[in-house]
Design a binder for these strands. Structure first.
Lengths: 152, 152
DNA sequence: TATTGTTATACTCTATAACTATA
DNA sequence: TATAGTTATAGAGTATAACAATA
């Protein structure tokens, strides 16, 4: 009898590889984050920009992009989107006429509170499968795995 | 005095969010996996296909794609690449003339051993920052985070 | 009617190179 | 010379819709 496509497959070493498990888990998080926040029009990437601008008002696009570990060219479209949504504004830098200083707008400040509530609720939902202390340990392990290989 | 782009930024809640930490860690893994295996011409995604074909010879493209959690249309280019590298072959299914049965080629079998050695070495390198028992716990936590939300 | 492999297509994310205006 | 923002561009990766052959 031929095997059906829905039969469980043997994953071999795949299930024991940290890289594969990270990819699957990250995909789950990405999708559920998007579901939780797509009515607000904020992707995981844009959320990261918003947090850094909120916590570090007045920084340049390049500084934000370096902190997030991606190229400054990618920041252009991101800030464009956030500006169009009236969440972030580019102000001319007082000290360097080549660069902009990024700030949350008034609307962005209000929006940010609402967004963070939503994100923390999402986080809480997904933490439901963790036992006490496991979240902190998970974060700690993930940071160690990045140590020396990223800018943050 | 103006802040320099290289100053450390305040990440606020970002560093405490599982989703963000997963994304950063996954990026580190993806990049180091690519460095370790790009001379072999195998990406993380192609590696997943190879493992599933090795462990489940004779399955269809659709079965493999479902197990990996992506669309069957994406399998076409993947199997094309693996066939061009003489690692995988499409054999006509004996029971269903619409579908192919996937197998590793002879060359693919030899290549697979070498590739797995490389991947396990890569895994070992990255496990260096983990304490005894933490890897199993990490895998367990990551699988729990996926439970009920993926096909595997 | 439903499914397999395929194609065409599009969208996101990301990186590189080159340009401009400044420094 | 070097840097900030920008643009054009290209490459993955991924998803949808539609089609022909087959079930």
């Amino acid at each position: 009898m031929a095997s059906k496509p829905t039969d469980k497959l043997d994953f071999g070493i795949l299930h024991e590889l940290i890289g594969y498990r990270l990819r699957r888990a990250q995909l789950v998080f990405f999708n559920s984050f998007s579901s939780a926040c797509n009515d607000l029009g904020v992707s995981p990437g844009l959320f990261g920009v918003l947090v850094l601008v909120k916590q570090n008002p007045g920084r340049t696009q390049t500084a934000i992009s370096q902190a997030l570990g991606n190229d400054r060219s990618a920041m252009v479209a991101a800030v464009d989107k956030l500006e169009k949504k009236d969440l972030v504004e580019r102000r001319p830098s007082l000290t360097d006429r080549r660069s902009y200083a990024l700030y949350l707008t008034e609307n962005g400040e209000r929006f940010y509170q609402q967004l963070v509530d939503r994100v923390l609720q999402h986080e809480t939902d997904l933490e439901a499968v963790l036992r006490p202390g496991e979240k902190d340990l998970l974060i700690d392990i993930l940071m160690r795995l990045c140590a020396g290989r990223t800018s943050d």
